[in-house]
Design a protein around this nucleic acid. Structure first.
Lengths: 169, 169
DNA sequence: CCCAGTTAGTTGCAGACCCATGTATTATGG
DNA sequence: CCATAATACATGGGTCTGCAACTAACTGGG
């Protein structure tokens, strides 16, 4: 936890950029550092809210993906694609969930290369409880209201689309 | 790198949330996942742009902090506060920069507990070059324009202020 | 049919981050 | 003045992430 600051480091950086690199460089640099900081703050809030459930946010995301899958199970590679993380990041994620008894590994019935992760009944219970908790705290987005969040989502959707993501609406 | 998706996982999650938890939960959940994805995309772009300089974005940030400091040197603890990361994250950051010859460790003249990190001439050169490169690519914010970035910055400033950050303007 | 190429998953390595703990040094209150 | 508290940094453990390389298994063209 960083110690208290008596000023805004992002505004300070903007001042330096304006002076040394020109006004036109300021919005982009400020946006990046603001996103980085917002990400850090939100992740911290989410992990704190999930701590009573013994979950982290990445593990929560993986659990919810299984929660809403048709069969309650998915191949690990498909999970990586859906979670938009590298395939090699999925293995330790599932390891943690399996150690907690929330998911179970099982072989694919017809393709012996493939490993399926299946959510357990305890996993389902915990997923529902954790989601209730996160919804109740607005997923760490306070104090932003619905209009601000919609505006944010619109801008970020344009950004994601520009970066090559498939974005609906 | 996650494999291609034929749909938008964020829109898919929004659909599930709308159906199972109510419309009022959608904007917050969508905002969080959008921020997470935008963070991932921007960081990936920045690290790719910094790779030719042998830098990562966190190391670049630390280097720029020294670049704009009055003496070109700062105590490690103060750097953690300014970078808004945990103090224990600063040590390996400075280790990497020192191994590359971009900063130098030195003892504090009057307080023997304190270690100072000082930017070297090579560090100054590389910092300027890397900043030119990042400014030229809009810090990875393409295709967003100045108005969208300003709007984004305004909303995130409100969020940061609400989270307890000191935010100017 | 079989070997080459592809695909699925794991492992090892590294970067980044946080937490808890330990050590050394400085500051402070009785 | 000295014992206690606070400060500065480092270390070890844990998580998440991505890259490169490896094994195992499937697939398809000759």
């Amino acid at each position: 936890m960083p110690q208290e600051l008596s000023f805004d480091p992002i505004a300070e950086a903007a001042r330096q950029w304006r002076e040394h690199w020109g006004e036109q460089t300021v919005p982009a640099m400020t946006a990046v550092t603001s996103i980085m900081r917002a990400h850090q703050l939100m992740l911290s809030r989410l992990n704190a809210a999930l701590d009573p459930f013994g979950l982290t946010f990445p593990r929560y995301e993986a659990l919810m993906l299984l929660f809403y899958s048709r069969q309650g199970s998915l191949p690990l590679g498909k999970m990586g694609a859906r979670l938009q993380v590298h395939q090699t990041s999925v293995t330790p994620l599932i390891d943690g969930l399996a150690k907690a008894g929330l998911v179970q590994r099982s072989p694919h019935p017809s393709d012996r290369r493939t490993t399926l992760a299946t959510i357990t009944p305890q996993g389902r219970r915990l997923a529902a409880q954790a989601t209730e908790a996160l919804n109740a705290m607005g997923f760490g987005t306070e104090p932003l209201g619905p209009e601000e969040l919609e505006s944010l989502n619109g801008i970020l959707a344009a950004f994601r689309r520009g970066a090559g993501d498939h974005v609906d609406l």
